[in-house]
Design a protein around this nucleic acid. Structure first.
Lengths: 181, 181
DNA sequence: CTCATAAACTACCGACCGGTCGGATCTATT
DNA sequence: AATAGATCCGACCGGTCGGTAGTTTATGAG
């Protein structure tokens, strides 16, 4: 076992993030992890099977080690992690895959992408629900995710991270003021 | 001349929008417009050359026929057009190309994508600048674009257009209240 | 040390990619 | 009617795609 499963998934994530589903090739992935292409197929049955692994890994990293006592603080921590990650990498794997692998071909990938975003929103909303109600919590979380994802437009085309910072601030204050009511 | 230049560019836009740069093939485009692949190359020297055409067409459609007397109203009209388009098509061509064709290969496409978004923002900002100042106008316009683009996350993965409507309302009221000051 | 299994390798498949070539066909001007 | 130029087409190029077949090598249990 020359390359660990985790390292393969992490490299696949990098390729998907920067080249998209079609643009990322199994050959490139094999080279990156120091294997031959055929060897990858002993670990993953298809290219598509990489997508759920990549996305669940990414979401798990976002929701680990949160302050249990203070849900509002936990909400803020997750948003900050998302914003920091998007600023550092300029792009979102999930969004690139949402645009590139949500068609009727690759149905497993499409389902994984859907689960990535709805899971992210619903776990965020769960942190807000006790204080602002379920419906409003879902709106706040969904809008926050959309704003951060949208700000990647500017990180990608201009390398400008200020819009991301503004989107983060807005969503944090929005949650805080909804909470106070 | 069996197919007009305009119809080719429009079909190319549809393919880029839904399949991305890598995922859209010249063969598919040829079939869609009723030509053979080789014939496309009498009109466009490369696949990459389609990208600027697609994006300038799209931006021109956004800024045509605006109320000249009322810049704030014009600003609102453009945002509404963007939101309507994104809701109807679920995706943004520009964003798909930004993620998929902004690498060092395809430099012409990357420049066109950059110009698509910065041009959109700067033309929007020009409508706001007289009343709120240049710097603030750029922030408002950039944030508005980012929010609408980000809302496509939900149109793509869930077919939900409500986040888009909320993003539009927020950006409109933000511009209006900045204007009043 | 043996031996089964897992994991890596080489080599290959058919399909499709962007792009090119030489010739056929269409159209407009004279 | 002749001709020149634009447009279209069938056939093809080298290369890459996702995926597979068959074989060798590394590993770990008895």
């Amino acid at each position: 076992m020359k390359a660990s499963l985790g390292s393969i998934v992490r490299e696949a994530r990098e390729l998907f993030r920067h080249h998209g589903y079609d643009g990322a090739s199994m050959q490139d992935l094999a080279t990156k992890v120091g294997l031959k292409k055929a060897s990858l197929y002993t670990r993953f049955p298809t290219k598509e099977a990489l997508v759920p692994e990549v996305l669940t890994l990414t979401n798990d990293e976002l929701f680990v080690d949160l302050p249990e006592a203070d849900p509002l603080a936990a909400y803020g921590v997750v948003l900050e992690r998302i914003a920091r990650g998007l600023s550092a990498e300029t792009r979102c794997v999930g969004l690139h895959l949402a645009y590139g692998a949500s068609g009727p071909d690759t149905p497993d990938a499409a389902k994984a992408v859907r689960g990535f975003f709805t899971g992210q929103r619903d776990r965020l909303a769960a942190l807000l629900a006790p204080s602002v109600g379920e419906a409003r919590a879902r709106e706040l979380a969904g809008d926050a995710i959309a704003r951060l994802e949208g700000a990647t437009v500017w990180t990608v085309v201009e390398g400008d991270v200020e819009p991301m910072a503004r989107a983060l601030r807005l969503s944090l204050s929005e949650a805080a003021s909804s909470h106070r009511r």
